[in-house]
C-alpha cells in the first residue's frame, strides 16, 4: 500500500517533470525560431535598404527605413499587399509577412540610427529649408514641418523624412498620384496629392536634398 502510493507519487512527479520540461523546451524552441525568423527577415530588408537601414541607391532608389515610424511602415506594407501602392517587388515581399512579423520588423527598424546616405546636390538647400519650414504660401504648399515635425522625424502614420534618400523623395513626390492611393481603397496618401501637384521639379529637388541631410 505504502509502496504503491509512493510509486504512484513518484510516477506522477516524473510525468509532471517531463511535461514541464517539454513545455519549456517547446517555448524556448518557438521563441528561438521566431527570433531566427525575425533576424532573417531583417537581413532580407537590409540587403536592399542598406546594411544599417540607411537606404540604398540601386537602379531604383530604396528608401531609408532606419528610424521610420512603425505605424507608417505597417501601413505601407499593407498598401503594397492591397496594391493601393504600386510596387510589384514590395508587394511580393510584403505578402509573406505575418502581422506579428511586421510589428517586430517595424519596432527593430525604428531603433536604427545610421548616418544619412548622403549624395544629394547641395546647391539649393536654402530653398529646401524654406519650403520645409515655411511652405510656399503663393503656391498653396504648406510647411512640411507642420505635419512631419520640426525635426522631420514624423509621428504615427506620418513618415519620418529626416535622412531619407534624396532620389527616393524626388521619385515619391514626382510620381505620387501614380504610385499611391491606387484602386478603390482610400488611404491617407490622398492628403499629399495637392501639395505634390503644386511643387515644381526644382522645388521637389531642393526639398528632397534638404531633408536628406537631416539627422
Amino acid at each position: 500500500m505504502k509502496v504503491t502510493s509512493l510509486r504512484l507519487a513518484f510516477q506522477t512527479a516524473l510525468l509532471a517533470v517531463c511535461f514541464a520540461a517539454t513545455g519549456r523546451a517547446d517555448a524556448a524552441d518557438m521563441s528561438q525560431q521566431a527570433q531566427q525568423g525575425l533576424q532573417g527577415k531583417l537581413e532580407y530588408c537590409k540587403t536592399c535598404h542598406g546594411l544599417s537601414g540607411e537606404g540604398y541607391r540601386g537602379y531604383y532608389p530604396m528608401p531609408r527605413l532606419a528610424g521610420q515610424q512603425p505605424e507608417y511602415l505597417e501601413n505601407q506594407l499593407q498598401a503594397f499587399i492591397r496594391r493601393s501602392r504600386t510596387n510589384p517587388v514590395m508587394s511580393n515581399v510584403a505578402h509573406g509577412l505575418t502581422p506579428s512579423m511586421v510589428a517586430a520588423l517595424a519596432a527593430n527598424l525604428r531603433d536604427l540610427n545610421p548616418n544619412p546616405y548622403g549624395g544629394a546636390p547641395r546647391d539649393s538647400l536654402a530653398l529646401g529649408k524654406t519650403i520645409f519650414e515655411q511652405g510656399l504660401p503663393e503656391s498653396n504648399v504648406p510647411a512640411c514641418s507642420a505635419c512631419h515635425g520640426p525635426d522631420a522625424k514624423g509621428k504615427a502614420e506620418i513618415p519620418r523624412l529626416a535622412g531619407q534618400l534624396y532620389w527616393y523623395t524626388v521619385k515619391s513626390l514626382t510620381n505620387w498620384s501614380r504610385e499611391r492611393g491606387q484602386g478603390s481603397l482610400k488611404d491617407t496618401s490622398a492628403i499629399m496629392v495637392p501639395t505634390t501637384h503644386n511643387l515644381t521639379q526644382a522645388q521637389i529637388s531642393a526639398l528632397a536634398a534638404y531633408v536628406s541631410y537631416l539627422k
Binding site: G40, C48, G58, Y59, Y60, V89, N92, V93, G96
Partner: peptide, 18 residues
C-alpha cells in the same frame, strides 16, 4: 524580377535594372 520572398532572396531588378 520578383526575388524569392520565402527564402529572403531580394529581386535582382531593383539594383541591376529592368
Amino acid at each position: 524580377d520578383e526575388g524569392i520572398a520565402d527564402s529572403d532572396v531580394s529581386a535582382c531588378v531593383v539594383c541591376h535594372g529592368p
